[in-house]
């Protein structure tokens, strides 16, 4: 089935999931249902955040979108020009860079796989490394970089292959607040500049409101979409404006969470 068909010219969908379900067979032999009929769409150029309690299948969903896992049932539809294993890279929380490659060669990895000439790929990589603020560390190995620097490198590595859709699985989950805010800002800047589509998983409500054009809330396992929230706040979304807090509270409520008294 084709997306963006002439019947619906107004929508430019990058990724659409329809009724996607996935179960795992655990080591003990019992069946664990991770996703239960998930449907969602991501428009081209959109920044969509997925949020949900731990173990609800967010990683599973991203892996399905990236083509690393096949769903048991349901469909994964990709927009024009999007191909799994080609221009849909995924930035993980851990193991984001190959430890046996220097930063430069990590960033050139995707280009090397495409047999791009060494000179060209090094130029591209150097420019991206500068863009993510790691100039001077081209020759460093991942173990010589801090956690935040590694995630910057991972973003450069993903951007090097000119992604159409960038999947991110709690990329800033292991960072301290200060680094996290820096990287959030950097990612938003890169996104606004490059027009890519981002599907971003987090379990941090604040992060969801800061980053997302749209926030999709998942239920506990088995994961289902329980709420879709349009965030119409202007960027940059720093500070504790009333609108920001309102969205935050709304999101918190939908997660069945805790609300401050008096709100």
């Amino acid at each position: 089935m084709k997306l963006n068909d002439p019947d619906r010219p107004e929508t430019k969908v990058a990724l659409e999931l329809r009724g996607v379900s996935k179960s795992y067979c655990s080591e003990s032999g019992s069946l664990v249902q991770a996703l239960d009929g998930v449907g969602l769409t991501v428009q081209e150029g959109e920044f969509v955040v997925l949020i949900g309690p731990t173990g609800c299948g967010k990683t599973t969903l991203l892996n399905i979108a990236a083509g690393l896992l096949a769903p048991d049932s349901g469909q994964v539809l990709l927009g024009k020009g999007l191909r799994q294993g080609d221009n849909i890279p995924c930035v993980f929380q851990h193991y984001t860079l190959f430890p046996w490659r220097t930063l430069l060669h990590n960033v050139t990895f995707g280009l090397e796989m495409r047999s791009i000439a060494r000179h060209d790929r090094n130029d591209t990589a150097r420019a991206l490394i500068a863009k993510v603020g790691l100039s001077g560390f081209e020759g460093a190995y991942p173990h010589e970089l801090s956690g935040g620097m590694r995630q910057r490198g991972a973003i450069a590595q993903a951007l090097a292959i000119k992604p159409k859709l960038l999947l991110m699985d709690e990329p800033f989950g292991a960072l301290d607040d200060y680094t996290r805010m820096e990287l959030q800002q950097m990612l938003i800047d890169l996104w606004q500049e490059s027009q890519i589509t981002v599907l971003f998983v987090t379990h941090n409500i604040d992060e969801a409101v800061v980053m997302g054009d749209r926030v999709i809330v998942f239920s506990e396992r088995p994961g289902k979409v329980i709420k879709k929230l349009q965030v119409k706040l202007s960027r940059p979304r720093r500070g504790l404006s009333q609108e920001f807090t309102k969205v935050l509270v709304e999101l918190r409520q939908s997660l069945g969470g805790y609300v401050w008294p008096g709100e």
Partner: peptide
């Protein structure tokens, strides 16, 4: 070999041989 690295390579466009 950590599976994560194989997955990472795959999303970055590596073939099986690569």
């Amino acid at each position: 070999v950590r599976r994560n690295y194989l997955l990472l390579a795959k999303t970055l466009g590596a073939s099986r041989l690569q």
